[in-house]
Design a protein around this nucleic acid. Structure first.
Length: 467
RNA sequence: CGGGGUGUAGCGCAGCUUGGUUAGCGCGCCUGCUUUGGGAGCAGGAGGUCCCGGGUUCGAAUCCCGGCACCCCGACCA
């Protein structure tokens, strides 16, 4: 009997078990909300730090806009309001009386940020305007699932305004590639499929939505991030315009892009196994845990010394000296939490001037000499990172089928992704696949690059069941 | 919103059909002792508006009426 429900028995139940046993999060008191517990939040904080750093490297600056948005803002952009009004939370009362105009709790901030961009941009010299905010948003989801689809979630949303379509497009792609794709592959070790959304799947109010799709342990897809070209749709209704160097009044071209706490759910489902979560070393809030096996002064003292030495070497490490708890319990707990590397220190090890090293990803234990331990640890951590990515790539490729008919797609989507020529699907095929709960996750050119339009000939559609 | 289900200790559940002493069980929690190299054992202990409101009855977790909440399956979504 395992600690968790096994993945093959019931994947959703396994996911719930991991959330509980690894002490990541639980449901909040209001339907669809979640409480993120300290360990879960520390993983999110690491994601934030890595993403934030990349966003800043692309030149965007952080700012903060209000949670409350006048309802009237939403009504300005027809497609946007149509897309979002069903899931808006609306405040009708404040300070004990009914409000003149209802206030929406932001589901996303294109409107309010558009309003202020319009005020701030006057000249072509003010462009591009590159903003980002870290915030919570609320969407009244009909079927919530912890981290994957919650009524309130945390995210970053970038909003930019550009001088022309080309500059806007280039920036939206740059965020997609240099921030999201780089982060997901090199930090999360999740080999996402990057492509363009079909018209049906496009963000409400965008002219182009691009996406990064991760494959989960059960072969289903998870949209892990998006970057949108908004064209001039929001510029028109929020008067985001500027005076060009030729003295003409011109409309800006805007973009928006985001990743959310959903990535925590993606991390769990992409790397987790029947022993629990697995956090890639580059991301892990705790990369190494040093377990003092026995209540012995020399053991405790050595564990502390190893901790200090590793911390000095830049390793995120913590020591476990809870010697009144059995070893098995502690080992299992750290495995559930997915700590990549465990160092066990006991009297038997010390007699040999060595320690035991256990790798979470493989379950393999080996001995390592006390001297030169920090080098050994750093090397092992980077090996684990590579192995996790290699394993995820292998699974993605194994479970991606080349198809030439819709019925083959339906078959293949039962266990993974299906690739098929987009010309063989089209809007009609997309609707037909939807009846089998399969969606076109994204479109790519045959060489894997991003299409300018879904009408380009020779595109490949990635189809899958999705969360 | 349509269909199904569940509300009893922190969590998971039994008890309800056929009303009746002090409402049980497992896990977790607390104390003590023995343990500790893969979820320890024994002993003792704490913890309950039985979802809410009304009704029937000498007596309701249990029967009746009304309400609420949550979960699962579909349409929506980062």
């Amino acid at each position: 009997m395992g600690v968790l429900t096994s993945q093959s028995e019931d994947f959703p139940k396994w996911y719930q078990d991991v959330l509980n046993k690894a002490v990541l999060a639980e449901s909040g008191p209001v339907r669809g909300t979640m409480v993120i517990r300290p360990y879960g939040y520390s993983i999110w904080e690491r994601m934030q730090a890595e993403v934030d750093q990349r966003i800043k490297a692309c030149g965007a600056e952080n700012a903060y806009f209000p949670l409350f948005i006048p309802m009237s803002y939403f009504e300005r952009e027809a497609e946007h309001v149509e897309g979002f009004s069903p899931e808006l939370a609306v405040v009708t009362h404040g300070g004990g009386s009914k409000l003149e105009e209802p206030i929406a709790v932001r589901p996303t901030s294109e409107t309010v940020i558009g309003e202020y961009m319009g005020r701030w941009i006057q000249s072509y010299r003010d462009l591009p305007l590159l903003l980002n905010q870290w915030a919570n948003v609320v969407r009244w989801e009909l079927r919530p699932r912890t981290f994957l689809r919650t009524s309130e979630f945390l995210w970053q949303e970038g909003h930019t305004a550009h001088i022309d379509q080309e500059d806007a497009r280039r920036y939206a792609v740059r965020i997609l590639e240099d921030v999201y794709h780089d982060f997901m592959v090199n930090v999360l070790a999740i080999p996402v499929v990057v492509g363009r959304k079909t018209a049906k799947e496009r963000f409400a109010g965008a002219i182009n939505s691009m996406t990064l799709e991760g494959m989960m342990g059960d072969g289903k897809a998870l949209q892990m991030g998006t970057s949108h070209e908004l064209g001039q749709n929001f510029a028109k209704v929020f008067s985001i315009d500027y005076l060009s160097d030729k003295g003409a009044q011109e409309l800006c071209w805007t973009t928006s892009w985001g990743v959310s706490t959903r990535m925590v759910g993606g991390l769990i489902m992409a790397h987790g196994d029947n022993n629990g979560l697995q956090v890639p070393p580059v991301l892990a809030p705790t990369q190494v845990v040093v377990i003092a096996i026995k209540d012995d002064p020399e053991v405790i003292e050595t564990a502390g010394r190893i901790e200090a030495e590793l911390r000095e070497a830049g390793v995120r490490v913590r020591v476990d000296t809870r010697v009144d708890t059995s070893f098995g319990r502690r080992a299992t707990d750290w495995e559930l939490k997915g700590i990549p590397l465990r160092i066990e220190v006991g009297p038997r090890d010390l007699a040999q001037q060595e320690v035991t090293i256990a790798v979470r990803a493989t379950g393999v234990k080996s001995k390592a000499s006390l001297s030169g331990l920090s080098n050994k640890v750093s090397e092992t951590l980077s090996e684990i990172q590579s192995k996790m990515l290699a394993f995820a790539i292998e699974r993605r490729d194994e479970r991606t089928a080349e198809c030439s008919t819709l019925s083959e797609v339906v078959e293949a989507a039962g266990s993974g992704f299906a690739r098929i020529e987009w010309d063989l699907v089209g809007e009609k095929g997309e609707a037909e696949l939807a009846r089998s709960a399969i969606t076109v996750r994204c479109l790519q050119r045959s060489d894997g690059s991003l299409p300018y339009s879904e009408d380009e000939p020779g595109l490949v559609a990635y189809c899958a069941r999705a969360y």
